[in-house]
């Protein structure tokens, strides 16, 4: 038998055995689906409302913490600027008072 005959024999069309389609369908149904977040197979479906609330609460805590930090930072910045301005005015008025006294003495 030459190569052409061997290939022809190997690639010839054959009908599947009886019940092949039913076996494939049955096998597909029996195989477990791959885990998926959306399918709900990781957590019982009854957990989802709790998970949603927990996520929302965590998000609120993070936002709240960020807002408080921002407020404290602004407050500190304002206090710093006001302190410097207050000292500047104080120094200016001291200087002015000194100059007036010196002018009177002269």
């Amino acid at each position: 038998m030459n190569l052409d005959d061997e290939l022809r024999a190997a690639l010839r069309r054959e009908d599947p055995s009886p019940g092949f389609a039913q076996r494939v369908v049955a096998r597909a149904k029996s195989k477990p689906a791959s885990p998926s977040w959306f399918s709900g197979s990781w957590f019982p479906s009854s957990w989802f409302p709790r998970m949603m609330w927990a996520t929302a609460l965590a998000a609120m805590l993070v936002i709240g913490f960020a807002a408080v930090s921002e407020y404290r930072e602004k407050k500190a910045e304002r206090a710093g600027r006001e302190a410097v301005l207050a000292l500047r005015i104080t120094a200016e008025k001291l200087n002015s008072a000194r100059d007036k006294v010196l002018r009177r003495e002269n």
């Binding site: 407050k75 500190a76 910045e77 206090a79 710093g80 006001e82 302190a83 207050a86």
Partner: peptide, 12 residues
């Protein structure tokens, strides 16, 4: 600025 705010300003 009270002592609390002065403390905050100092730290800033």
């Amino acid at each position: 600025l009270d002592s609390n705010l002065l403390g905050i300003a100092f730290q800033f």
